[in-house]
């Protein structure tokens, strides 16, 4: 048996010259691919946003930029309050929200069953996929003239444009959600004696539901994009109309206020739907 103390001495390489990867302090906020506490994340996020607003405010007040083009945040906020009082801003926002939801629900009610059928029956998928793929790549604004010819400038044009922008995207997302349901689930249902309808309803649909709700949330966001296009082109009400009218008179603060309202509605809706998702799918 050899005495381990007699073996050659271990040489410790000088850490300054050793060719090893750098090992930074993991507690540093700059740790590469490191972690950050939730509180720190929120703090940094709020700090950056407030800082940016303050810089913007200062730049506008000092006169570094022409306020006709870039009004200060405080000016935007005060014109927003003025618009709520004198220009029925909330009513316009309500009308826009209603349009988005009507068109979105219309698109969802059609896209969900069709998407499910496309994935469940190869023949439906084969028949519809080329058409949907083609229409999906048509930019919605390019279809505005056609929809005005068909539907005039009333409510139906706006709903049609919104529907057009979401339905074809959604149908493929739904089909994909269904396709991703593990085949094991389907076979378990069959070996328990479920027929096709029962398998679809009790197993496949339940399995795809979290993905479906997520995709609905995302497409609802797209709806707002198309809404503004529709309201700019043909409307006498809604946020898009408000923004476009303000632009005509170069009322930049009002234009910005309108944009901010859309952003706020979008953010609130998205957070509500996310919370709903977490509550409904606790098992995830």
């Amino acid at each position: 048996m050899t005495d381990i103390s007699e073996t050659a001495p271990v040489t410790v390489p000088d850490p300054r010259t050793a060719a090893t990867a750098p090992r930074p302090d993991p507690s540093s906020i700059w740790a590469f691919r490191g972690t950050l506490s939730r509180r720190a994340q929120i703090g940094i996020g709020v700090g950056t946003s407030v800082g940016l607003l303050l810089i913007w405010e200062a730049v506008a007040r000092i006169g570094l930029v022409n306020t006709t083009f870039l009004p200060s945040p405080s000016t935007v906020l005060s014109s927003m309050l003025m618009m709520v009082q004198k220009q029925n801003l909330l009513q316009h926002a309500g009308i826009s929200t209603l349009r988005v939801w009507v068109a979105f629900i219309l698109a969802a009610v059609m896209a969900i069953p069709i998407g499910i059928l496309m994935s469940s029956y190869r023949v439906v998928g084969a028949a519809l996929e080329p058409i949907i793929d083609f229409i999906r790549y048509l930019p919605v604004p390019a279809l505005v003239p056609l929809s005005i010819i068909w539907f005039g400038v009333g409510e139906s044009t706006k709903l049609y444009l919104l529907w057009l922008g979401t339905f074809f995207q959604l149908v493929l997302l739904v089909a994909d959600d269904m396709r991703r349901v593990p085949h094991e689930y389907i076979e378990i249902a069959h070996t328990l004696g479920a027929n096709t309808r029962q398998t679809l309803r009790d197993v496949a649909f339940r399995a795809m539901l979290p993905g479906l709700v997520d995709n609905l949330r995302i497409t609802l966001g797209w709806c707002w994009t198309y809404l503004i296009i529709a309201e700019i082109v043909a409307a006498d009400s809604g946020i898009g109309f408000v923004i476009w009218t303000a632009r005509r008179y170069m009322k930049t603060p009002e234009v910005m206020a309108g944009v901010v309202v859309i952003g706020v509605i979008g953010l609130v809706t998205d957070q509500l739907l996310r919370a709903l998702h977490r509550r409904a799918f606790r098992y995830l």
Partner: peptide
């Protein structure tokens, strides 16, 4: 082997 029970 996998997906043997329903997660929901």
């Amino acid at each position: 082997q996998s997906y043997s029970s329903f997660p929901w």
